[in-house]
Design a binder for these strands. Structure first.
Lengths: 155, 155
DNA sequence: CTGTGTGCAAAGCATTTGCACTATG
DNA sequence: CATAGTGCAAATGCTTTGCACACAG
Protein backbone atom coordinates (compact mmCIF):
# COMPACT_ATOMS: atom_id res chain seq x y z
CA UNK A 1 0.00 0.00 0.00
CA UNK A 2 2.89 2.44 -0.12
CA UNK A 3 2.00 5.17 -2.54
CA UNK A 4 -1.64 4.28 -2.50
CA UNK A 5 -2.69 7.85 -2.16
CA UNK A 6 -0.50 8.84 -5.07
CA UNK A 7 -2.16 6.27 -7.29
CA UNK A 8 -5.54 7.31 -6.10
CA UNK A 9 -4.79 10.80 -7.30
CA UNK A 10 -3.44 9.66 -10.58
CA UNK A 11 -6.67 7.84 -11.24
CA UNK A 12 -8.78 10.78 -10.18
CA UNK A 13 -6.84 13.10 -12.43
CA UNK A 14 -7.94 10.88 -15.25
CA UNK A 15 -11.62 10.81 -14.38
CA UNK A 16 -11.29 7.28 -13.14
CA UNK A 17 -12.41 5.91 -9.83
CA UNK A 18 -10.30 4.34 -7.18
CA UNK A 19 -11.74 0.90 -6.61
CA UNK A 20 -10.76 -2.23 -4.77
CA UNK A 21 -9.87 -4.24 -7.88
CA UNK A 22 -7.65 -1.44 -9.11
CA UNK A 23 -5.92 -1.16 -5.80
CA UNK A 24 -5.33 -4.88 -5.53
CA UNK A 25 -3.93 -5.12 -9.05
CA UNK A 26 -1.68 -2.14 -8.59
CA UNK A 27 -0.51 -3.48 -5.29
CA UNK A 28 0.36 -6.82 -6.81
CA UNK A 29 2.24 -5.21 -9.68
CA UNK A 30 4.23 -3.02 -7.36
CA UNK A 31 5.28 -6.03 -5.31
CA UNK A 32 6.51 -8.12 -8.20
CA UNK A 33 9.44 -7.53 -10.44
CA UNK A 34 8.17 -9.98 -12.99
CA UNK A 35 6.33 -9.58 -16.25
CA UNK A 36 2.97 -11.01 -15.48
CA UNK A 37 0.38 -12.10 -17.94
CA UNK A 38 -3.23 -11.19 -17.38
CA UNK A 39 -3.91 -14.75 -16.35
CA UNK A 40 -0.99 -14.73 -13.91
CA UNK A 41 -2.31 -11.61 -12.30
CA UNK A 42 -5.81 -12.98 -12.12
CA UNK A 43 -4.56 -16.21 -10.59
CA UNK A 44 -2.46 -14.42 -7.97
CA UNK A 45 -5.38 -12.23 -7.08
CA UNK A 46 -8.08 -14.81 -6.53
CA UNK A 47 -6.66 -15.69 -3.14
CA UNK A 48 -6.31 -12.11 -2.01
CA UNK A 49 -9.62 -11.00 -3.45
CA UNK A 50 -11.68 -14.02 -4.44
CA UNK A 51 -14.50 -12.11 -6.06
CA UNK A 52 -12.43 -10.49 -8.79
CA UNK A 53 -13.26 -11.23 -12.40
CA UNK A 54 -10.88 -11.92 -15.24
CA UNK A 55 -12.60 -9.27 -17.29
CA UNK A 56 -11.86 -6.66 -14.70
CA UNK A 57 -8.21 -7.57 -14.78
CA UNK A 58 -8.15 -7.17 -18.54
CA UNK A 59 -9.96 -3.87 -18.41
CA UNK A 60 -7.90 -2.48 -15.58
CA UNK A 61 -4.62 -3.33 -17.23
CA UNK A 62 -5.70 -1.79 -20.49
CA UNK A 63 -6.85 1.31 -18.68
CA UNK A 64 -3.58 1.60 -16.83
CA UNK A 65 -1.76 1.11 -20.06
CA UNK A 66 -3.69 3.90 -21.71
CA UNK A 67 -2.97 6.13 -18.75
CA UNK A 68 0.68 5.24 -19.03
CA UNK A 69 0.94 3.53 -15.64
CA UNK A 70 2.03 0.18 -16.96
CA UNK A 71 3.98 -1.03 -19.93
CA UNK A 72 3.13 -3.90 -22.21
CA UNK A 73 5.92 -6.39 -22.49
CA UNK A 74 6.52 -8.10 -25.77
CA UNK A 75 6.31 -11.78 -25.16
CA UNK A 76 6.05 -13.89 -28.22
CA UNK A 77 3.98 -16.44 -26.40
CA UNK A 78 0.56 -15.14 -27.28
CA UNK A 79 -0.15 -13.65 -23.89
CA UNK A 80 -0.25 -10.06 -22.93
CA UNK A 81 2.19 -9.17 -20.21
CA UNK A 82 2.53 -6.02 -18.19
CA UNK A 83 4.87 -4.39 -15.77
CA UNK A 84 4.64 -1.21 -13.78
CA UNK A 85 6.32 1.60 -15.63
CA UNK A 86 9.65 2.73 -14.33
CA UNK A 87 9.60 5.69 -12.03
CA UNK A 88 12.28 8.05 -13.21
CA UNK A 89 15.56 6.89 -14.60
CA UNK A 90 16.70 4.99 -11.56
CA UNK A 91 14.78 1.91 -12.49
CA UNK A 92 14.73 2.17 -16.24
CA UNK A 93 15.45 -1.15 -17.84
CA UNK A 94 15.02 -3.33 -20.88
CA UNK A 95 14.70 -6.99 -21.67
CA UNK A 96 16.64 -9.99 -22.73
CA UNK A 97 14.23 -12.51 -24.20
CA UNK A 98 15.26 -16.11 -24.49
CA UNK A 99 14.31 -17.77 -27.74
CA UNK A 100 14.66 -21.11 -26.05
CA UNK A 101 12.51 -20.98 -22.94
CA UNK A 102 10.80 -17.64 -23.43
CA UNK A 103 12.16 -16.26 -20.20
CA UNK A 104 12.44 -12.51 -19.91
CA UNK A 105 15.43 -11.11 -18.08
CA UNK A 106 15.68 -7.50 -17.00
CA UNK A 107 18.85 -5.56 -17.34
CA UNK A 108 19.74 -2.08 -16.25
CA UNK A 109 23.19 -1.71 -17.74
CA UNK A 110 24.79 1.08 -19.73
CA UNK A 111 21.88 3.38 -19.11
CA UNK A 112 23.90 6.46 -19.91
CA UNK A 113 24.85 5.38 -23.41
CA UNK A 114 21.32 4.34 -24.03
CA UNK A 115 19.91 7.66 -22.99
CA UNK A 116 22.23 9.45 -25.35
CA UNK A 117 21.36 7.14 -28.17
CA UNK A 118 17.65 7.40 -27.52
CA UNK A 119 17.81 11.15 -27.23
CA UNK A 120 19.57 11.54 -30.50
CA UNK A 121 17.30 9.05 -32.21
CA UNK A 122 14.29 10.85 -30.88
CA UNK A 123 15.42 14.15 -32.29
CA UNK A 124 16.12 12.76 -35.71
CA UNK A 125 12.92 10.80 -35.92
CA UNK A 126 10.75 13.59 -34.67
CA UNK A 127 12.20 15.93 -37.23
CA UNK A 128 12.16 13.53 -40.12
CA UNK A 129 8.88 11.71 -39.63
CA UNK A 130 6.93 14.24 -37.59
CA UNK A 131 6.47 11.48 -35.12
CA UNK A 132 5.88 12.42 -31.50
CA UNK A 133 7.85 9.96 -29.44
CA UNK A 134 6.33 8.97 -26.15
CA UNK A 135 8.23 5.87 -25.28
CA UNK A 136 10.75 3.38 -26.50
CA UNK A 137 11.47 -0.26 -26.22
CA UNK A 138 14.73 -2.10 -26.63
CA UNK A 139 15.04 -5.83 -26.46
CA UNK A 140 17.66 -8.40 -27.19
CA UNK A 141 16.71 -11.86 -28.33
CA UNK A 142 18.91 -14.86 -27.89
CA UNK A 143 19.64 -17.83 -25.71
CA UNK A 144 19.82 -17.59 -21.97
CA UNK A 145 22.42 -19.23 -19.79
CA UNK A 146 20.19 -22.13 -18.78
CA UNK A 147 19.22 -22.95 -22.34
CA UNK A 148 22.79 -22.71 -23.54
CA UNK A 149 23.74 -25.32 -20.99
CA UNK A 150 20.82 -27.61 -21.71
CA UNK A 151 20.23 -27.43 -25.40
CA UNK A 152 23.03 -28.18 -27.74
CA UNK A 153 21.33 -27.73 -31.05
CA UNK A 154 17.99 -29.41 -30.78
CA UNK A 155 14.63 -28.11 -31.95
CA UNK B 1 11.38 -14.98 -58.25
CA UNK B 2 14.76 -13.31 -57.92
CA UNK B 3 16.83 -15.30 -55.50
CA UNK B 4 14.56 -18.27 -55.70
CA UNK B 5 17.43 -20.66 -56.00
CA UNK B 6 19.09 -19.14 -52.97
CA UNK B 7 15.98 -19.68 -50.89
CA UNK B 8 15.62 -23.18 -52.22
CA UNK B 9 19.09 -23.92 -50.90
CA UNK B 10 18.46 -22.31 -47.58
CA UNK B 11 15.45 -24.56 -47.11
CA UNK B 12 17.34 -27.65 -48.16
CA UNK B 13 20.16 -26.84 -45.78
CA UNK B 14 17.58 -27.04 -43.07
CA UNK B 15 16.08 -30.34 -44.10
CA UNK B 16 13.02 -28.61 -45.38
CA UNK B 17 11.47 -29.00 -48.78
CA UNK B 18 10.96 -26.36 -51.39
CA UNK B 19 7.25 -26.25 -52.13
CA UNK B 20 4.86 -24.05 -54.01
CA UNK B 21 3.23 -22.51 -50.91
CA UNK B 22 6.63 -21.66 -49.51
CA UNK B 23 7.72 -20.08 -52.72
CA UNK B 24 4.56 -18.03 -53.05
CA UNK B 25 4.76 -16.76 -49.48
CA UNK B 26 8.42 -15.89 -49.77
CA UNK B 27 7.78 -14.19 -53.06
CA UNK B 28 5.02 -12.10 -51.57
CA UNK B 29 7.11 -11.10 -48.58
CA UNK B 30 10.00 -10.09 -50.76
CA UNK B 31 7.75 -7.86 -52.83
CA UNK B 32 6.22 -5.99 -49.95
CA UNK B 33 7.84 -3.61 -47.55
CA UNK B 34 5.00 -3.86 -45.12
CA UNK B 35 4.50 -5.83 -41.95
CA UNK B 36 1.88 -8.30 -42.89
CA UNK B 37 -0.25 -10.29 -40.55
CA UNK B 38 -0.84 -13.94 -41.27
CA UNK B 39 -4.34 -13.08 -42.40
CA UNK B 40 -3.03 -10.35 -44.71
CA UNK B 41 -0.67 -12.77 -46.31
CA UNK B 42 -3.32 -15.40 -46.67
CA UNK B 43 -5.70 -12.93 -48.21
CA UNK B 44 -3.13 -11.64 -50.70
CA UNK B 45 -2.27 -15.15 -51.67
CA UNK B 46 -5.69 -16.57 -52.39
CA UNK B 47 -5.80 -14.80 -55.74
CA UNK B 48 -2.33 -15.88 -56.78
CA UNK B 49 -2.69 -19.40 -55.46
CA UNK B 50 -6.33 -20.11 -54.64
CA UNK B 51 -5.73 -23.52 -53.14
CA UNK B 52 -3.57 -22.36 -50.26
CA UNK B 53 -4.72 -22.91 -46.69
CA UNK B 54 -4.49 -20.55 -43.76
CA UNK B 55 -2.86 -23.27 -41.75
CA UNK B 56 -0.06 -23.56 -44.24
CA UNK B 57 0.58 -19.85 -44.00
CA UNK B 58 0.82 -20.08 -40.24
CA UNK B 59 3.11 -23.07 -40.40
CA UNK B 60 5.33 -21.66 -43.09
CA UNK B 61 5.80 -18.38 -41.30
CA UNK B 62 6.65 -20.08 -38.05
CA UNK B 63 9.08 -22.33 -39.85
CA UNK B 64 10.75 -19.40 -41.55
CA UNK B 65 10.90 -17.63 -38.26
CA UNK B 66 12.61 -20.57 -36.62
CA UNK B 67 15.04 -20.72 -39.49
CA UNK B 68 15.69 -17.03 -39.08
CA UNK B 69 14.37 -16.00 -42.49
CA UNK B 70 11.69 -13.70 -41.19
CA UNK B 71 11.26 -11.51 -38.18
CA UNK B 72 8.21 -11.21 -35.99
CA UNK B 73 7.05 -7.66 -35.65
CA UNK B 74 5.62 -6.48 -32.39
CA UNK B 75 2.19 -5.19 -33.10
CA UNK B 76 0.06 -4.68 -30.07
CA UNK B 77 -3.04 -5.51 -32.03
CA UNK B 78 -3.23 -9.19 -31.28
CA UNK B 79 -2.06 -10.33 -34.66
CA UNK B 80 1.20 -11.86 -35.57
CA UNK B 81 3.10 -9.89 -38.15
CA UNK B 82 6.19 -10.79 -40.10
CA UNK B 83 8.69 -9.22 -42.38
CA UNK B 84 11.59 -10.63 -44.29
CA UNK B 85 14.76 -10.30 -42.31
CA UNK B 86 17.18 -7.67 -43.46
CA UNK B 87 19.97 -8.83 -45.68
CA UNK B 88 23.14 -7.30 -44.37
CA UNK B 89 23.30 -3.84 -42.92
CA UNK B 90 22.09 -1.99 -45.95
CA UNK B 91 18.48 -2.57 -45.14
CA UNK B 92 18.59 -2.79 -41.40
CA UNK B 93 15.77 -0.85 -39.85
CA UNK B 94 13.48 -0.44 -36.88
CA UNK B 95 9.97 0.70 -36.18
CA UNK B 96 7.96 3.67 -35.14
CA UNK B 97 4.67 2.43 -33.78
CA UNK B 98 1.76 4.80 -33.54
CA UNK B 99 -0.24 4.54 -30.36
CA UNK B 100 -3.11 6.20 -32.12
CA UNK B 101 -3.75 4.22 -35.26
CA UNK B 102 -1.37 1.33 -34.76
CA UNK B 103 0.53 2.09 -37.93
CA UNK B 104 4.08 0.86 -38.13
CA UNK B 105 6.61 3.09 -39.84
CA UNK B 106 10.06 1.89 -40.82
CA UNK B 107 13.08 4.05 -40.33
CA UNK B 108 16.65 3.50 -41.33
CA UNK B 109 18.31 6.49 -39.75
CA UNK B 110 21.46 6.83 -37.65
CA UNK B 111 22.40 3.25 -38.32
CA UNK B 112 25.99 3.84 -37.37
CA UNK B 113 25.28 5.09 -33.88
CA UNK B 114 22.89 2.28 -33.38
CA UNK B 115 25.38 -0.33 -34.39
CA UNK B 116 27.88 1.02 -31.94
CA UNK B 117 25.35 1.10 -29.19
CA UNK B 118 24.12 -2.39 -29.95
CA UNK B 119 27.60 -3.75 -30.17
CA UNK B 120 28.59 -2.37 -26.83
CA UNK B 121 25.36 -3.47 -25.24
CA UNK B 122 25.83 -6.93 -26.64
CA UNK B 123 29.27 -7.26 -25.14
CA UNK B 124 28.19 -6.15 -21.72
CA UNK B 125 25.11 -8.30 -21.66
CA UNK B 126 26.84 -11.37 -22.92
CA UNK B 127 29.50 -11.03 -20.27
CA UNK B 128 27.20 -10.18 -17.43
CA UNK B 129 24.25 -12.45 -18.06
CA UNK B 130 25.86 -15.22 -20.10
CA UNK B 131 23.20 -14.48 -22.64
CA UNK B 132 23.94 -15.33 -26.26
CA UNK B 133 22.52 -12.48 -28.29
CA UNK B 134 21.09 -13.42 -31.66
CA UNK B 135 19.03 -10.42 -32.52
CA UNK B 136 17.72 -7.14 -31.26
CA UNK B 137 14.70 -5.02 -31.57
CA UNK B 138 14.31 -1.31 -31.10
CA UNK B 139 11.02 0.48 -31.36
CA UNK B 140 9.70 3.89 -30.61
CA UNK B 141 6.11 4.38 -29.58
CA UNK B 142 4.24 7.59 -30.01
CA UNK B 143 1.88 9.49 -32.23
CA UNK B 144 2.29 9.62 -35.97
CA UNK B 145 1.89 12.68 -38.10
CA UNK B 146 -1.60 11.81 -39.25
CA UNK B 147 -2.86 11.20 -35.75
CA UNK B 148 -1.26 14.35 -34.44
CA UNK B 149 -3.19 16.31 -37.01
CA UNK B 150 -6.47 14.54 -36.43
CA UNK B 151 -6.63 13.90 -32.73
CA UNK B 152 -6.21 16.74 -30.32
CA UNK B 153 -6.48 14.93 -27.05
CA UNK B 154 -9.35 12.54 -27.41
CA UNK B 155 -9.53 8.91 -26.38
C1' DC C 1 8.80 -45.22 -52.39
C1' DT C 2 9.16 -42.59 -47.71
C1' DG C 3 8.31 -39.16 -45.10
C1' DT C 4 7.61 -34.06 -45.26
C1' DG C 5 4.20 -30.77 -46.33
C1' DT C 6 -0.72 -29.42 -47.24
C1' DG C 7 -5.78 -28.46 -46.51
C1' DC C 8 -9.73 -28.87 -44.11
C1' DA C 9 -12.57 -29.03 -40.20
C1' DA C 10 -12.55 -29.17 -35.48
C1' DA C 11 -10.60 -27.69 -31.31
C1' DG C 12 -8.06 -24.36 -28.10
C1' DC C 13 -7.29 -20.12 -25.89
C1' DA C 14 -6.73 -15.32 -25.00
C1' DT C 15 -9.46 -11.33 -25.29
C1' DT C 16 -13.84 -8.71 -25.95
C1' DT C 17 -18.70 -7.67 -25.49
C1' DG C 18 -23.52 -7.29 -23.65
C1' DC C 19 -25.99 -6.70 -19.70
C1' DA C 20 -27.79 -6.33 -15.12
C1' DC C 21 -25.89 -5.08 -10.81
C1' DT C 22 -22.75 -2.48 -7.45
C1' DA C 23 -20.44 1.08 -5.43
C1' DT C 24 -17.64 5.49 -6.01
C1' DG C 25 -17.65 10.40 -5.65
C1' DC D 1 -28.08 9.69 -7.11
C1' DA D 2 -25.80 9.49 -11.50
C1' DT D 3 -22.61 6.99 -13.73
C1' DA D 4 -18.18 4.54 -13.82
C1' DG D 5 -16.84 0.08 -12.68
C1' DT D 6 -17.65 -4.96 -11.99
C1' DG D 7 -18.65 -9.93 -12.87
C1' DC D 8 -20.57 -13.38 -15.45
C1' DA D 9 -21.58 -15.84 -19.54
C1' DA D 10 -21.58 -15.76 -24.25
C1' DA D 11 -19.35 -14.43 -28.36
C1' DT D 12 -15.02 -13.29 -31.12
C1' DG D 13 -11.09 -14.10 -33.47
C1' DC D 14 -6.42 -15.67 -33.89
C1' DT D 15 -3.81 -19.85 -33.72
C1' DT D 16 -3.15 -24.90 -33.20
C1' DT D 17 -4.17 -29.79 -33.87
C1' DG D 18 -5.66 -34.25 -35.92
C1' DC D 19 -5.94 -36.62 -39.92
C1' DA D 20 -6.09 -38.27 -44.64
C1' DC D 21 -4.09 -37.06 -48.86
C1' DA D 22 -0.42 -34.97 -52.06
C1' DC D 23 4.05 -34.32 -53.50
C1' DA D 24 9.33 -33.43 -53.11
C1' DG D 25 13.54 -35.78 -53.09
Amino acid sequence: MPGRRKWQCRFRENVSRWTVPREVILDLLSRTSKHMSTKDIYASLTSLYPGIGLTTVYRTLELMHRLGFVQKVTAHDGQRRYELKDEGKRNHHHHLICNGCGDIIDYRDFVQEELEFIKKAGEVLTAKHSFLIQDHNIEFLGICEKCRATTRNSE
